[in-house]
Design a protein around this nucleic acid. Sequence first.
DNA 1: AACAGGTATTTCAGATTTGAATGATGCTAT
DNA 2: ATAGCATCATTCAAATCTGAAATACCTGTT
Lengths: 183, 183
Amino acid sequence: MVEGLDAARMTCWRAYIESSQRLLTALEDELREGSELSLADYHVLVLLSEAPRQRLRMGELAGRLVFSPSRLTYQISSMRRRGLVVRESCPQDRRGSEAVLTAAGLLALRRAAPQHLAAVRARFMDDLDEAEVAALTRVFTRLGDRLRDHTATTRPRGEHAASREPRDEHADSREPRGDRAAS
Amino acid sequence: MVEGLDAARMTCWRAYIESSQRLLTALEDELREGSELSLADYHVLVLLSEAPRQRLRMGELAGRLVFSPSRLTYQISSMRRRGLVVRESCPQDRRGSEAVLTAAGLLALRRAAPQHLAAVRARFMDDLDEAEVAALTRVFTRLGDRLRDHTATTRPRGEHAASREPRDEHADSREPRGDRAAS
DNA sequence: AACAGGTATTTCAGATTTGAATGATGCTAT
DNA sequence: ATAGCATCATTCAAATCTGAAATACCTGTT
C-alpha cells in the first residue's frame, strides 16, 4: 500500500470533510425552512445581485458556482418558473444567454439573507477567532486559486471554467462591491 | 437589512464554500477515472473496513456519512449490486440491517486508496504547513462536534443522528484504529 | 463567402437524492 | 401480555444532477 496521509493530516482531512458536509446540510435545512430558497438558489441570487446589470451569462454563472452546464440550465429554468430570474439572449453573442435577476428575485434574496447569514455565523463563523479566520482565508483562497487554474487547464468541467485570457475581471473579486444587495 | 458577516468573514466564507466545492468535484472526478468508485462508495468502504467485524448498521453508517436514510438505502443497494457489500439482518434488533464489506469491496478500496489519497495530498494537503493543518483540525473538529450535537438535538436528519444517550462509543472516534484497511 | 474547427448552451436519458408515507419491530407502562 | 408510542429501515414519486449528444452560433482561413 502506497503511503497515504500522515496521521495529523488524516485527522484534519476527515474532520474537514465530515463537518463541512454537516454544515452545508444544516445551512440548507435552515435556509429552506426560513424561505422558499435552496442554497443553490441563494448563491445564484447573490451572484446576480452583484453583477453589473444584475445579469450574468450562463457560462460565467456555471463557472463561479462550480455547476455543470446542464445543472445550471436546470437550476435557472427552475428559478425562472418561480419568477426569480428571467432569461435574455445575449446581444453580443447569439449563442449565449443571460440570466437576469427580477425584482421578485432580489426581494427573495433580501428577505432570506439576514436569516441565512445569521445561520452562517451561528453555525460556523462566530466560533472562529481572528487568527482562525485569517488562516482559513489564506488556505482556501490559495486552494481556490489553484483549483480554478487546474479545472480550466486540465478538465474543463463542462467547458465553463474561466477563460484562458489573462484574467476575467469578474472572476475572482472577493471583495464587497457597493452594489451588493445582500450580504 | 440585518447585519451580515464582517468583511473578513465574508471573504473567508466565500473562499471556503467555493474552493471546497471545487475540491470535492476534482477528487470525485479523479477517483472515478482511476477506479469504479464514487466518493460516496469510497467513504462507505473506508468506514466498513474500519468497523469491528467490517460491518455497520444502516443508521450508524448514515449518521457518520451524513446521509439521509433513504439515500443510504439507495447507496448500499447500488454497492450490493456491484458486489462491494452484502447485507445481513441484525440479530440483536430485527428492525435493523447491517452492511457488510465483502472481499471484493475491500480489494476495491485497497486498489483505489493510493491514488485517492495521493489526490487528496496533491490538491489540498501538501500545500498546508503544520500550523495550517493544526488550525484546520482545530476548527473543523470543533465544528463537527457542535454540529453533531445540534443535529442530534434539533432536527434529527432522518432520525439517524447519534442517540441522546451520554455518548455513543463509536460516534466520534477520529483516531486510527489498527484494523484499518486503507488510509 | 463558404469551410473548418471551436464555443455556448440546451436537450435527453439515466442516475441519484429527497421527503413523506409505510411496514416492521422494539420498548414502557399498565 | 398488550396498548401506545418510539425507532429502523425501505419504498415510492417527484426533484435534481450527470454526461453525452445535439444545436446554434462564432471565428479565422482560404
